[in-house]
Structures are given as C-alpha cells and as structure tokens.
Computed example of a mutant assay.
Amino acid sequence: MDKELLRVVIILIGMLVMIGMLLWHFFKSLRERREADDYFDDSEYDIGDEEFQVDEDEDELDLFPTESVVDGDGLLDEEEIKPTPKEPPKAAAAPKPSPNKTALPGLIEFSIVARADEGFNGEDLFEAFERVGLIYGSVKVFERIDKNRLVDFAVASMIDPGTFPDTHLDEFYCPGIVFYMQPREVDNPLAVFDDFMETIDTLAIELDGVVWDNQRQPLTAETIAQFRQMLAAR
C-alpha cells in the first residue's frame, strides 16, 4: 500500500476513535443527569408556598417565625410544638455611685496680709513656716507634704512670680502670702481643709497678719463653714 494512503487511513481511524469516545462520554453524562433528576423528584417533597412567603414589610432577614423556640427532642417525638414563654428581662444592677469630686471647688485660695507697712520679712517667714511643718519645695514655695509624700496645699509669695528666695532672706520682704489648696487632688478634702485653716490661723497670729478670702475680703467664720459643708458633702 502506498505510504500516503496508509497515513490517511491511520488519521481517519484516529478521528473515528475520538468521535466515538466523545459520544460515549456525552451519553453517559446524560444518563447520570436523568437518574439524579429522578432521585430528587419535586413531587415527593411537596412544600407549601405559604410557609415561605416573605412579608415585604418585614426585615429582609426575618424569613422564619421567631415567636416560638423549637425543641429538637419534640421534633423526634412528633409532639405539638408550643411557644416557650419568654422570661422578663432582668433589671441591670444599678452601679454604686462613686464620690463625685467634680462637685468640689477646683481651688481654694486664702491669704495672709501683713499689718506692717514693710510686709513680712524673709527670715521671719522661713522660721514660722518651719514651726508649722511646711517644707521648702523644689519650685521655691512652701508645701504641706502628707505621709505619701504628696502635696496637700502650698504657700506662695504675693510678689510675682510667687516664689521665695533661698538666700539673702533678711533682704526679702513681701506684703503677704497666699495659700492654695486643690480639693479634687487630695484623698480627704475635709481633713486637709481643717489642717489648711489651722495652719493659716497659726501663721496669722505669729506673723501679725490679716486673713483674706478669695475675694480679698476678711475671712469670716461663715465662709469657712460654707467650705467645710461643701467638702463634707462630696
């Protein structure tokens, strides 16, 4: 047989084999699809349309009724499903009110003004401050330090910038001294205020000065009582 004719015959045979395989796969897949359709026949699983109707006015995720909770054991026993009564929500325990320090004044400021025209001398101030237990601090004012090494209140000079010199005290004079207390920054504002007032009264006597309130008016017992009542009520 001629070589060219042999080559053509081989090619035709190969094509016929490929066509046959394709047809075999096609009919096989068609048969499997029909068997699957027969297995999942919709007529055997008749589901009413009413159960799965979605109310357009409801939320898009609310597809099934949620009024009752279905128990899995009830489904197995084919018993009637009854809505589970809902328990009333438990009231959350009210948090205990914490001390409201924001109701306290941010700053209490009283002063002692010298009766003498020359004011208070630096040496007299330092000696009097040491007797009442005030400490000269790093910012050059005197401070009351508690047992935790925290500042309860401070004493500054009326001369700007309010500091006291640490040298040449005999040459330093100021017309008065100012006491500062921050009730919101201390643990026991009322106790600190009582120490605050006792220190002021003692120094006013020793230095011969007049005690002023924050309005630069003579401090009265009524004003002190008002502050004590405010601090005790926090």
Rank of each mutant, 00 (worst) to 15 (best):
residue 140 K to L: 06
residue 139 V to C: 00
residue 25 H to S: 14
residue 144 R to N: 11
residue 40 F to A: 14
residue 40 F to N: 14
residue 230 M to W: 09
residue 84 T to Q: 07
residue 105 P to Q: 03
residue 155 V to F: 01
residue 46 D to C: 05
residue 16 L to P: 05
residue 17 V to D: 15
residue 147 K to H: 12
residue 43 S to L: 15
residue 38 D to G: 02
residue 160 D to P: 07
residue 66 T to S: 15
residue 54 V to R: 07
residue 222 E to P: 00
residue 10 I to T: 14
residue 171 E to T: 09
residue 164 F to Y: 02
residue 166 D to M: 05
residue 159 I to L: 14
residue 199 T to W: 11
residue 220 T to V: 12
residue 194 D to S: 09
residue 97 P to I: 11
residue 137 G to K: 06
residue 85 P to I: 06
residue 83 P to V: 02
residue 233 A to W: 10
residue 173 Y to Q: 11
residue 29 S to L: 00
residue 217 Q to I: 12
residue 98 S to A: 12
residue 208 D to L: 08
residue 195 D to K: 13
residue 177 I to L: 06
residue 188 N to S: 09
residue 181 M to H: 08
residue 234 R to C: 04
residue 194 D to H: 03
residue 109 E to V: 09
residue 107 L to N: 08
residue 129 F to N: 05
residue 178 V to M: 10
residue 64 F to V: 15
residue 3 K to M: 07
residue 11 I to E: 13
residue 122 G to R: 04
residue 188 N to Y: 04
residue 60 E to H: 09
residue 35 E to Q: 11
residue 222 E to F: 13
residue 215 Q to Y: 15
residue 229 Q to M: 06
residue 221 A to K: 06
residue 223 T to G: 01
residue 180 Y to K: 15
residue 39 Y to Q: 07
residue 112 I to Y: 03
residue 121 N to L: 04
residue 143 E to Q: 14
residue 17 V to Y: 05
residue 89 P to L: 10
residue 11 I to C: 10
residue 80 E to F: 01
residue 71 D to T: 04
residue 33 R to K: 12
residue 68 S to N: 00
residue 42 D to I: 07
residue 179 F to C: 04
